[in-house]
């Protein structure tokens, strides 16, 4: 945890994040540190993308148990705040993966609350201004299975 906060290179931060994921660190412990890292203006775009990806991955792996909703709320906040378009594309692709996970038939009912959060964030982002073509294409793809975003 301290290594994640104090790391001087992206590689060190990634190693710390993977190790914490490997330990099964609960979301309540991880969240304050992640919030601190993403709030730091010196944090690279690469690490911001990596954090989004690894949290998405852990949600899909159901590693956060009952705190899954809080983890998805964090992702939605980051998604709505991101300004860099390449990073935004990466975030959309990750949310698409999450929607694929929430849409699986087995146990779908239990995942509906987080699916609603993601849909709401995608809708909200759409109202925030024009998006590059590649992101619009991803939206069109998502809208085929989730027409409520249109």
């Amino acid at each position: 945890m301290r290594a994640l906060k104090n790391a001087r290179t992206d590689e060190a931060q990634k190693a710390a994040l993977r190790s914490l994921a490997g330990f099964g660190t609960p979301w309540s412990t991880l969240a304050p540190v992640l919030e601190q890292v993403v709030a730091n203006p010196a944090t690279s775009l690469d690490i911001r993308g990596f954090i989004f990806g690894i949290v998405t991955f852990q949600v899909r792996q159901e590693k956060f148990g009952l705190q899954q909703r809080e983890a998805v709320q964090f992702l939605c906040r980051e998604f709505l705040a991101v300004k860099d378009t390449r990073l935004l594309l990466g975030f959309v692709l990750n949310l698409k993966l999450l929607l694929h996970y929430t849409g699986q038939s087995e146990g779908r009912q239990g995942r509906l609350p987080i699916e609603r959060l993601i849909i709401e964030a995608l809708k909200q982002r759409k109202t925030m201004g024009s998006m590059p073509t590649e992101i619009v294409e991803q939206y069109q793809d998502i809208e085929e299975t989730h027409p409520e975003i249109r």
Partner: peptide, 11 residues
């Protein structure tokens, strides 16, 4: 693609 979230120098 998920291997980047699981394997690295620490492994």
């Amino acid at each position: 693609v998920d291997q980047i979230y699981q394997w690295g120098p620490e492994s």
